[in-house]
Design a protein around this nucleic acid. Structure first.
Lengths: 164, 164
DNA sequence: CTCCTCACGAAACAAACTTGCAACTTGCAC
DNA sequence: GTGCAAGTTGCAAGTTTGTTTCGTGAGGAG
Protein backbone atom coordinates (compact mmCIF):
# COMPACT_ATOMS: atom_id res chain seq x y z
CA UNK A 1 0.00 0.00 0.00
CA UNK A 2 2.44 2.55 1.20
CA UNK A 3 5.01 3.19 -1.48
CA UNK A 4 8.19 1.28 -0.83
CA UNK A 5 10.48 3.73 0.88
CA UNK A 6 13.46 1.70 2.06
CA UNK A 7 15.26 4.90 3.04
CA UNK A 8 18.47 3.96 1.39
CA UNK A 9 21.84 5.36 2.37
CA UNK A 10 23.72 7.10 -0.41
CA UNK A 11 27.47 7.17 -0.69
CA UNK A 12 29.76 9.33 -2.77
CA UNK A 13 29.32 7.08 -5.80
CA UNK A 14 25.57 7.43 -5.72
CA UNK A 15 25.76 11.18 -5.45
CA UNK A 16 28.18 11.38 -8.36
CA UNK A 17 25.87 9.24 -10.46
CA UNK A 18 22.86 11.33 -9.50
CA UNK A 19 24.71 14.47 -10.44
CA UNK A 20 25.17 13.14 -13.96
CA UNK A 21 21.67 11.75 -14.34
CA UNK A 22 20.17 14.96 -13.10
CA UNK A 23 21.72 16.73 -16.04
CA UNK A 24 21.28 14.04 -18.67
CA UNK A 25 19.79 10.64 -18.02
CA UNK A 26 20.55 9.44 -21.55
CA UNK A 27 24.20 9.17 -20.64
CA UNK A 28 25.38 5.60 -21.27
CA UNK A 29 26.08 3.65 -18.12
CA UNK A 30 29.52 2.88 -19.40
CA UNK A 31 30.33 6.56 -19.66
CA UNK A 32 29.01 7.14 -16.17
CA UNK A 33 31.13 4.27 -14.96
CA UNK A 34 34.26 5.85 -16.38
CA UNK A 35 33.40 9.17 -14.79
CA UNK A 36 32.92 7.76 -11.33
CA UNK A 37 35.40 4.85 -11.53
CA UNK A 38 32.92 2.02 -11.44
CA UNK A 39 31.93 -0.73 -13.84
CA UNK A 40 28.77 -0.43 -15.90
CA UNK A 41 26.91 -3.16 -13.99
CA UNK A 42 27.69 -1.48 -10.70
CA UNK A 43 26.28 1.77 -12.05
CA UNK A 44 23.23 -0.08 -13.28
CA UNK A 45 22.59 -1.65 -9.88
CA UNK A 46 22.91 1.65 -8.08
CA UNK A 47 20.57 3.41 -10.48
CA UNK A 48 17.99 0.67 -10.11
CA UNK A 49 18.24 0.81 -6.35
CA UNK A 50 17.76 4.56 -6.34
CA UNK A 51 14.77 4.29 -8.62
CA UNK A 52 13.14 1.66 -6.45
CA UNK A 53 13.82 3.58 -3.27
CA UNK A 54 12.34 6.76 -4.71
CA UNK A 55 15.52 8.80 -4.69
CA UNK A 56 15.01 9.05 -8.42
CA UNK A 57 11.37 9.97 -8.72
CA UNK A 58 11.08 9.99 -12.48
CA UNK A 59 12.95 10.11 -15.75
CA UNK A 60 11.41 12.59 -18.08
CA UNK A 61 11.91 14.90 -21.00
CA UNK A 62 11.83 18.62 -20.32
CA UNK A 63 9.69 20.39 -22.89
CA UNK A 64 10.12 24.05 -23.76
CA UNK A 65 6.67 25.57 -23.11
CA UNK A 66 7.18 28.33 -25.64
CA UNK A 67 7.91 25.82 -28.39
CA UNK A 68 4.59 24.07 -27.86
CA UNK A 69 2.47 27.18 -27.81
CA UNK A 70 2.44 27.91 -24.08
CA UNK A 71 4.74 30.92 -23.76
CA UNK A 72 3.33 32.48 -20.60
CA UNK A 73 4.46 31.49 -17.11
CA UNK A 74 2.57 32.95 -14.17
CA UNK A 75 2.98 32.79 -10.42
CA UNK A 76 -0.04 33.05 -8.19
CA UNK A 77 -0.22 33.49 -4.46
CA UNK A 78 -3.54 32.25 -3.18
CA UNK A 79 -4.99 33.15 0.19
CA UNK A 80 -7.91 31.13 1.48
CA UNK A 81 -10.63 32.05 3.92
CA UNK A 82 -10.90 28.88 5.93
CA UNK A 83 -8.03 26.53 6.54
CA UNK A 84 -9.94 23.47 7.68
CA UNK A 85 -8.36 20.22 6.65
CA UNK A 86 -11.03 19.17 4.20
CA UNK A 87 -11.16 22.53 2.46
CA UNK A 88 -7.39 22.55 2.10
CA UNK A 89 -7.44 19.02 0.74
CA UNK A 90 -10.14 19.98 -1.72
CA UNK A 91 -8.06 22.90 -2.93
CA UNK A 92 -4.98 20.69 -3.28
CA UNK A 93 -6.97 18.18 -5.31
CA UNK A 94 -8.40 20.80 -7.60
CA UNK A 95 -5.07 22.49 -8.25
CA UNK A 96 -3.38 19.17 -8.83
CA UNK A 97 -5.98 18.11 -11.34
CA UNK A 98 -5.62 21.27 -13.41
CA UNK A 99 -3.17 20.66 -16.27
CA UNK A 100 -2.24 24.32 -16.59
CA UNK A 101 -0.99 24.22 -13.01
CA UNK A 102 2.57 23.06 -13.36
CA UNK A 103 3.51 23.32 -9.70
CA UNK A 104 1.53 23.80 -6.50
CA UNK A 105 2.89 24.29 -3.01
CA UNK A 106 1.10 24.67 0.30
CA UNK A 107 3.06 27.29 2.20
CA UNK A 108 3.30 29.27 5.40
CA UNK A 109 3.42 33.04 5.43
CA UNK A 110 1.21 35.68 3.92
CA UNK A 111 -0.22 33.25 1.41
CA UNK A 112 -1.50 29.71 1.63
CA UNK A 113 -0.78 28.35 -1.82
CA UNK A 114 1.71 29.26 -4.45
CA UNK A 115 0.99 28.10 -7.98
CA UNK A 116 3.09 28.06 -11.10
CA UNK A 117 0.85 28.22 -14.13
CA UNK A 118 1.73 27.83 -17.80
CA UNK A 119 -0.73 29.03 -20.43
CA UNK A 120 -0.89 30.03 -24.06
CA UNK A 121 -2.51 33.44 -23.72
CA UNK A 122 -3.55 35.88 -21.05
CA UNK A 123 -7.12 35.17 -22.05
CA UNK A 124 -6.55 31.56 -21.05
CA UNK A 125 -5.23 32.71 -17.71
CA UNK A 126 -8.20 34.97 -17.22
CA UNK A 127 -10.52 32.05 -17.90
CA UNK A 128 -8.56 29.94 -15.48
CA UNK A 129 -8.85 32.52 -12.71
CA UNK A 130 -12.60 32.52 -13.16
CA UNK A 131 -12.72 28.82 -12.72
CA UNK A 132 -10.11 28.28 -10.02
CA UNK A 133 -10.38 31.43 -7.90
CA UNK A 134 -13.57 33.37 -8.52
CA UNK A 135 -15.43 30.08 -8.76
CA UNK A 136 -14.12 28.94 -5.40
CA UNK A 137 -15.88 30.40 -2.38
CA UNK A 138 -12.96 29.66 -0.13
CA UNK A 139 -10.48 31.83 -2.01
CA UNK A 140 -10.12 35.14 -0.23
CA UNK A 141 -7.68 36.77 -2.62
CA UNK A 142 -4.90 36.01 -5.05
CA UNK A 143 -1.95 37.91 -6.41
CA UNK A 144 -0.56 37.41 -9.89
CA UNK A 145 3.05 37.70 -11.05
CA UNK A 146 3.73 37.33 -14.74
CA UNK A 147 7.15 35.99 -15.65
CA UNK A 148 9.08 38.18 -18.05
CA UNK A 149 12.14 35.96 -18.03
CA UNK A 150 12.58 32.36 -16.99
CA UNK A 151 16.06 33.00 -15.66
CA UNK A 152 16.66 29.56 -14.22
CA UNK A 153 14.26 26.69 -14.53
CA UNK A 154 14.73 23.14 -13.39
CA UNK A 155 14.26 20.68 -10.60
CA UNK A 156 17.93 20.12 -10.04
CA UNK A 157 18.85 19.49 -6.44
CA UNK A 158 22.14 20.43 -4.91
CA UNK A 159 24.18 17.33 -4.10
CA UNK A 160 26.78 17.93 -1.48
CA UNK A 161 30.33 16.80 -2.00
CA UNK A 162 31.30 13.25 -1.00
CA UNK A 163 33.27 14.35 2.02
CA UNK A 164 30.48 14.66 4.53
CA UNK B 1 26.74 30.73 -30.60
CA UNK B 2 23.06 31.32 -30.93
CA UNK B 3 21.19 28.17 -30.11
CA UNK B 4 19.79 26.50 -33.19
CA UNK B 5 16.10 27.26 -33.17
CA UNK B 6 14.63 26.01 -36.43
CA UNK B 7 11.13 26.66 -35.13
CA UNK B 8 9.71 23.33 -36.09
CA UNK B 9 6.06 22.64 -36.65
CA UNK B 10 4.58 19.89 -34.52
CA UNK B 11 1.77 17.63 -35.60
CA UNK B 12 -0.47 15.33 -33.61
CA UNK B 13 2.15 12.57 -33.67
CA UNK B 14 4.78 14.80 -32.16
CA UNK B 15 2.47 15.93 -29.40
CA UNK B 16 1.50 12.38 -28.60
CA UNK B 17 5.15 11.40 -28.41
CA UNK B 18 5.96 14.38 -26.23
CA UNK B 19 3.16 13.50 -23.91
CA UNK B 20 4.72 10.11 -23.29
CA UNK B 21 8.30 11.35 -23.00
CA UNK B 22 7.25 14.04 -20.61
CA UNK B 23 6.08 11.36 -18.23
CA UNK B 24 8.79 8.79 -18.84
CA UNK B 25 11.59 9.20 -21.33
CA UNK B 26 12.86 5.67 -20.72
CA UNK B 27 9.90 4.30 -22.63
CA UNK B 28 11.19 2.16 -25.51
CA UNK B 29 10.65 3.69 -28.92
CA UNK B 30 8.88 0.55 -30.01
CA UNK B 31 6.33 0.97 -27.23
CA UNK B 32 5.85 4.60 -28.17
CA UNK B 33 5.39 3.57 -31.76
CA UNK B 34 2.64 1.16 -30.84
CA UNK B 35 0.92 3.82 -28.78
CA UNK B 36 0.89 6.41 -31.54
CA UNK B 37 0.67 4.07 -34.54
CA UNK B 38 4.09 4.69 -35.99
CA UNK B 39 7.19 2.58 -36.52
CA UNK B 40 10.10 2.78 -34.11
CA UNK B 41 12.44 4.53 -36.58
CA UNK B 42 9.81 7.16 -37.29
CA UNK B 43 9.49 7.84 -33.59
CA UNK B 44 13.25 8.02 -33.29
CA UNK B 45 13.52 10.59 -36.09
CA UNK B 46 10.83 12.76 -34.59
CA UNK B 47 12.43 12.68 -31.17
CA UNK B 48 15.78 13.61 -32.64
CA UNK B 49 14.26 16.47 -34.56
CA UNK B 50 12.55 17.79 -31.47
CA UNK B 51 15.74 17.56 -29.47
CA UNK B 52 17.70 19.42 -32.11
CA UNK B 53 15.06 22.08 -32.47
CA UNK B 54 14.92 22.65 -28.74
CA UNK B 55 11.37 21.50 -28.21
CA UNK B 56 12.89 18.90 -25.91
CA UNK B 57 15.26 20.92 -23.80
CA UNK B 58 16.74 18.12 -21.74
CA UNK B 59 16.34 14.55 -20.61
CA UNK B 60 16.95 14.25 -16.94
CA UNK B 61 16.29 12.32 -13.78
CA UNK B 62 14.09 13.95 -11.17
CA UNK B 63 15.61 13.60 -7.73
CA UNK B 64 13.57 13.72 -4.53
CA UNK B 65 15.16 16.54 -2.51
CA UNK B 66 14.10 15.02 0.80
CA UNK B 67 15.85 11.77 0.00
CA UNK B 68 19.17 13.50 -0.53
CA UNK B 69 19.06 15.55 2.61
CA UNK B 70 17.43 18.72 1.29
CA UNK B 71 13.93 18.56 2.72
CA UNK B 72 13.09 22.26 2.80
CA UNK B 73 11.59 24.12 -0.15
CA UNK B 74 11.25 27.87 0.13
CA UNK B 75 9.77 30.57 -2.07
CA UNK B 76 11.20 34.05 -1.98
CA UNK B 77 9.84 37.21 -3.51
CA UNK B 78 12.62 39.67 -4.03
CA UNK B 79 12.12 43.37 -4.56
CA UNK B 80 15.02 45.42 -5.84
CA UNK B 81 15.78 49.10 -5.46
CA UNK B 82 17.05 49.93 -8.91
CA UNK B 83 15.93 48.18 -12.05
CA UNK B 84 18.68 49.24 -14.40
CA UNK B 85 19.60 46.65 -16.97
CA UNK B 86 23.05 45.90 -15.62
CA UNK B 87 21.89 45.53 -12.04
CA UNK B 88 19.12 43.18 -13.10
CA UNK B 89 21.54 41.17 -15.16
CA UNK B 90 23.91 40.97 -12.23
CA UNK B 91 21.13 39.70 -10.01
CA UNK B 92 20.10 37.13 -12.59
CA UNK B 93 23.67 35.91 -12.85
CA UNK B 94 24.12 35.62 -9.11
CA UNK B 95 20.85 33.77 -8.58
CA UNK B 96 21.57 31.46 -11.48
CA UNK B 97 24.99 30.60 -10.13
CA UNK B 98 23.68 29.65 -6.72
CA UNK B 99 23.10 25.91 -6.53
CA UNK B 100 20.49 26.17 -3.80
CA UNK B 101 18.38 28.29 -6.15
CA UNK B 102 16.40 25.74 -8.09
CA UNK B 103 14.31 28.17 -10.08
CA UNK B 104 14.48 31.90 -10.68
CA UNK B 105 12.00 34.05 -12.57
CA UNK B 106 12.06 37.75 -13.36
CA UNK B 107 8.49 38.92 -12.94
CA UNK B 108 6.15 41.86 -13.11
CA UNK B 109 3.97 42.87 -10.21
CA UNK B 110 4.73 43.66 -6.60
CA UNK B 111 8.00 41.74 -6.72
CA UNK B 112 10.83 41.64 -9.21
CA UNK B 113 12.20 38.14 -8.73
CA UNK B 114 10.67 34.95 -7.50
CA UNK B 115 13.03 32.25 -6.36
CA UNK B 116 12.50 28.63 -5.48
CA UNK B 117 15.15 27.52 -3.04
CA UNK B 118 15.92 24.04 -1.75
CA UNK B 119 18.03 23.65 1.38
CA UNK B 120 18.82 21.13 4.09
CA UNK B 121 18.07 23.26 7.14
CA UNK B 122 16.64 26.63 8.04
CA UNK B 123 20.11 27.60 9.21
CA UNK B 124 21.30 27.05 5.67
CA UNK B 125 18.54 29.28 4.40
CA UNK B 126 19.41 31.93 6.94
CA UNK B 127 23.03 31.85 5.78
CA UNK B 128 21.86 32.08 2.20
CA UNK B 129 19.75 35.16 2.90
CA UNK B 130 22.77 36.86 4.41
CA UNK B 131 24.74 36.25 1.28
CA UNK B 132 22.13 36.78 -1.41
CA UNK B 133 19.91 39.47 0.07
CA UNK B 134 21.50 41.28 2.99
CA UNK B 135 24.79 41.15 1.16
CA UNK B 136 23.28 42.78 -1.91
CA UNK B 137 22.80 46.54 -1.72
CA UNK B 138 20.23 46.50 -4.47
CA UNK B 139 17.77 44.25 -2.63
CA UNK B 140 15.08 46.40 -1.06
CA UNK B 141 13.12 43.66 0.63
CA UNK B 142 12.24 40.00 0.36
CA UNK B 143 9.39 37.85 1.57
CA UNK B 144 9.77 34.21 2.50
CA UNK B 145 7.24 31.40 2.09
CA UNK B 146 8.17 28.02 3.48
CA UNK B 147 6.57 25.07 1.73
CA UNK B 148 4.72 22.72 4.05
CA UNK B 149 3.59 20.44 1.25
CA UNK B 150 4.88 20.02 -2.27
CA UNK B 151 1.41 19.34 -3.61
CA UNK B 152 2.36 19.17 -7.27
CA UNK B 153 5.87 19.45 -8.58
CA UNK B 154 7.03 19.09 -12.12
CA UNK B 155 7.83 20.85 -15.36
CA UNK B 156 5.13 19.13 -17.33
CA UNK B 157 3.56 21.27 -19.99
CA UNK B 158 0.02 20.93 -21.14
CA UNK B 159 -0.14 19.56 -24.67
CA UNK B 160 -3.36 20.31 -26.42
CA UNK B 161 -5.28 17.58 -28.15
CA UNK B 162 -4.41 16.66 -31.74
CA UNK B 163 -7.50 18.24 -33.17
CA UNK B 164 -6.27 21.77 -33.55
C1' DC C 1 39.08 -19.47 12.24
C1' DT C 2 35.03 -20.30 9.48
C1' DC C 3 30.94 -19.10 7.54
C1' DC C 4 27.93 -15.73 5.80
C1' DT C 5 26.67 -11.69 3.41
C1' DC C 6 27.38 -8.19 0.24
C1' DA C 7 29.38 -5.49 -3.54
C1' DC C 8 32.30 -5.48 -7.40
C1' DG C 9 34.16 -6.81 -12.08
C1' DA C 10 34.34 -9.75 -16.49
C1' DA C 11 31.94 -11.95 -19.93
C1' DA C 12 27.85 -13.63 -22.32
C1' DC C 13 23.32 -12.48 -23.55
C1' DA C 14 19.25 -9.84 -24.88
C1' DA C 15 17.25 -5.65 -26.07
C1' DA C 16 17.16 -1.25 -27.92
C1' DC C 17 18.88 2.23 -30.87
C1' DT C 18 20.72 3.75 -35.37
C1' DT C 19 21.38 3.73 -40.29
C1' DG C 20 20.63 2.76 -45.36
C1' DC C 21 17.36 1.90 -48.81
C1' DA C 22 13.15 1.56 -51.56
C1' DA C 23 8.30 2.91 -51.77
C1' DC C 24 4.72 6.03 -50.70
C1' DT C 25 2.35 10.49 -50.08
C1' DT C 26 2.15 15.50 -50.59
C1' DG C 27 2.56 19.86 -52.85
C1' DC C 28 3.57 22.43 -56.78
C1' DA C 29 4.69 23.75 -61.45
C1' DC C 30 3.71 22.96 -66.07
C1' DG D 1 -4.38 16.30 -65.73
C1' DT D 2 0.52 15.10 -65.61
C1' DG D 3 5.02 14.85 -63.90
C1' DC D 4 8.64 16.27 -60.76
C1' DA D 5 10.77 17.19 -56.27
C1' DA D 6 10.80 17.06 -51.34
C1' DG D 7 9.71 14.89 -47.34
C1' DT D 8 8.21 10.81 -44.53
C1' DT D 9 7.40 6.16 -43.81
C1' DG D 10 8.45 1.16 -43.01
C1' DC D 11 11.59 -2.71 -43.35
C1' DA D 12 15.94 -4.89 -42.39
C1' DA D 13 20.78 -5.08 -41.17
C1' DG D 14 24.51 -3.39 -38.17
C1' DT D 15 25.95 -1.39 -33.98
C1' DT D 16 25.66 0.28 -29.50
C1' DT D 17 23.74 -0.16 -25.01
C1' DG D 18 21.52 -2.33 -21.14
C1' DT D 19 20.91 -6.63 -18.46
C1' DT D 20 21.87 -10.96 -16.42
C1' DT D 21 24.95 -14.57 -14.72
C1' DC D 22 28.86 -16.11 -12.57
C1' DG D 23 33.07 -15.98 -9.89
C1' DT D 24 36.01 -13.36 -6.65
C1' DG D 25 37.35 -10.83 -2.66
C1' DA D 26 36.42 -7.85 1.37
C1' DG D 27 34.25 -7.14 5.91
C1' DG D 28 31.36 -8.99 10.08
C1' DA D 29 29.25 -12.34 13.22
C1' DG D 30 29.47 -16.62 15.47
Amino acid sequence: MAKTAPEIALDAFDLAILKILQRDNATPQRTIGEAVNLSAPAVQRRIKRMEESGVIQANCAIVDPAKVGQPITIFVEVEVISETADLIDAAKAEFSATPEVQQCYYVTGEADFILVIVVATMADYEALTRRLFFGNNNVKKFRTFVAMDRVKVGLTVRLEAPGR
